[in-house]
Write a protein that binds this DNA or RNA. Structure first.
Length: 115
DNA sequence: ATGCTGACTATGT
DNA sequence: TACATAGCCAGCA
C-alpha cells in the first residue's frame, strides 16, 4: 500500500473515535496497521486541511496531553476547548485521565490488513 | 544521496 | 513524577 493510502487508513480510524473519548497516536497507528509508527499519525493529521470534518482533536499523546504544533504553546487551546465541549475533562496538569476517557474499540471491528 | 525535523512512545534513571 | 535517551520513518532542504 502506498504512503498516501496510509493516510486514508489513519483518517478512517480517527473517524471511529466517538464523541467524548480520545485515542492516542500510538493507538491510532496500531489500528491503522502502522504499529509503532505513531509519528506518522501525527504527520498524517498535520496534513489535514483547516476545517476538515475529521475529528482530529480526539487524538492526544500517550500522556493524555495535547501535543503542540510548531512549538506554539497556544496551538493546543482550540483542541482543548473542543474536547471540553464533548465532556472530556483535564486535570490540574492539563492532562486527560486516560483511564476514564480513552476510547476502547470493541474487537470485531478489525483494523485493515497489515502489510 | 545525506542529514535534520517532528501533532510520538517506551524505557531507564 | 519528571527529565533524558534511543528508536522510529516519511518529508524536505
Amino acid at each position: 500500500m502506498s504512503p498516501a493510502g496510509d493516510y486514508e487508513r489513519v483518517y478512517a480510524v480517527v473517524w471511529r473515535i466517538p464523541r467524548g473519548r480520545v485515542a492516542t497516536y500510538g493507538q491510532v497507528a496500531a489500528l491503522a496497521g502502522l504499529g509503532g509508527q505513531a509519528r506518522r499519525v501525527g504527520y498524517a493529521l498535520h496534513a489535514l486541511p483547516d476545517g476538515t470534518a475529521v475529528p482530529w482533536h480526539r487524538v492526544v499523546n500517550a500522556q493524555g496531553r495535547i501535543s503542540a504544533r510548531g512549538g506554539e504553546p497556544g496551538s493546543v487551546l482550540p483542541q482543548r476547548f473542543r474536547l471540553e465541549e464533548e465532556g472530556v475533562e483535564f486535570d490540574e496538569q492539563d492532562r486527560i485521565p486516560l483511564e476514564r476517557f480513552r476510547w476502547r474499540p470493541r474487537r470485531g471491528v478489525r483494523r485493515t490488513d497489515p502489510e
